[in-house]
Design a protein around this nucleic acid. Sequence first.
DNA 1: TCAACATCTGAGCAGATGCTCAGATGTCCA
DNA 2: TGGACATCTGAGCATCTGCTCAGATGTTGA
Lengths: 121, 121
Amino acid sequence: MAAVAGRVAGKKGGAVLSDRAYNAIAETFRALADPTRARIVHLLSFGESSVNHLAENLTVTPSAVSHQLRMLRQMGLVRFRREGQLAFYALDDPHVAILFQEAREHVSDYLQEGRKSREWL
Amino acid sequence: MAAVAGRVAGKKGGAVLSDRAYNAIAETFRALADPTRARIVHLLSFGESSVNHLAENLTVTPSAVSHQLRMLRQMGLVRFRREGQLAFYALDDPHVAILFQEAREHVSDYLQEGRKSREWL
DNA sequence: TCAACATCTGAGCAGATGCTCAGATGTCCA
DNA sequence: TGGACATCTGAGCATCTGCTCAGATGTTGA
């Protein structure tokens, strides 16, 4: 009831957050909510990489990768540095790799409950 | 290069995954990539709740909540039990609450770097 | 059985998303 | 400077998403 919804944020974990907080959290998930971006983030968890290198590994055009990288950059998940003609991208926050790993484990657990086949993990 | 992309999945963490794995992981993030669903998941992290109770707290119609709950159910994030006329929903996997908390910390860290104001967290 | 209540569901619409295409920008080297 | 290469960007499109609306389904108690 209103007693719960109206509670103001105090310490970590125990209270309802502001609309802006939920929007930012949802935006973070949205950054990872696409297979191409998920694969980019997973590749970057092994180390920094150039745009073309990512494009080759993902079998996607450099243009598409660049578009997605811009989105990830705007959302604060990756940073980049320029070296000559190349732009190297890397994860900007350890939480990002943790998020990916946690989602991977959720998927693994979910499948272990036998609701779907598991041969692909 | 191809040496990385071509590596076959071995143990946890160090290898490229299958397309189906990335799709499932992206789908998990997509489940949380909407402010309304993020708020539902956060509320449910405090304990199970009925549809109307959620709708009242979120200032959203019961119909909209029901639609979102169905999505969360299909994605394996929540389960429900019926008690009389009421349907009580709850988180179905500890990873879900962890994911939310991790995203929240990412957002908090991101803001602490001074790229945006932080008064809303 | 009937009314009241809680929840679910399908159709339809406005807005968002991801890709491709074409071209612009930036960098290196001769 | 000029060509080659890597990357970025905006426009346009087919598709997807989340909501509302109207009505169906299911449950309880009289």
